[in-house]
Amino acid sequence: MNIFRLAGDMTHLFSVLVLLLKIHTIKSCAGVSLKTQELYALVFAARYLDIFTNYISLYNTVMKLIFLGSSFSIVWYMRYHKIVRRSYDKDQDTFRHYFLILPCLLLALLINEKFTFKEVMWTFSLYLEAVAILPQLVLLQRTRNIDNLTGQYVFLLGAYRALYILNWVYRYFTEPHFVHWITWVSGLVQTLLYADFFYYYFQSWKNNQKLHLPA
């Protein structure tokens, strides 16, 4: 494991912690897209099918459990928690996330490294993760006052993706036969989706203003 990969995993972990902190202590999920959170829960469920059959390291298993547990509990909080669900901007969060799932599944059936159930599901999770942030970005654009925690959550998620790309560059030069087109292309697409957000995030940070995305 290299430093980029570790830093990427840690930013990912922090992003989840920031979101849980907001939901758990402030009891609010204002500005958070349930659609995106449901997609992430599906992403992790599809990707970590091998959690008990393919042991890599204790670190990997524990992290997988954390991502699975946190994504499903966030969805639960937003849907069913008596107080939290009241702050959910249902009328603003209108992205048709089901329309993302089917194309990703079809693409995974067509383009994969091996046509087995686990491999197709794994590829599906990569494609779906690439676009899972879209409902959240649309919701951010519609939110007048993006609170700091929500802004930081999306920023940390974007940073995690950028660090993973550095990790692949590093692995490409240090490990033999490290060529994984499917992972790289979907990862690159995913990171590019954050470009616009990053621009406005740094602008607001530089000018010391509240984050606001133009429609």
């Binding site: 990969r5 990912h12 890599i56 990997n60 794994w122 490290f178």
Partner: peptide
């Protein structure tokens, strides 16, 4: 092995 290489990521 090669197959494990990419599946060792999260």
């Amino acid at each position: 092995p090669l197959e494990q290489q990419i599946h060792d990521e999260l």
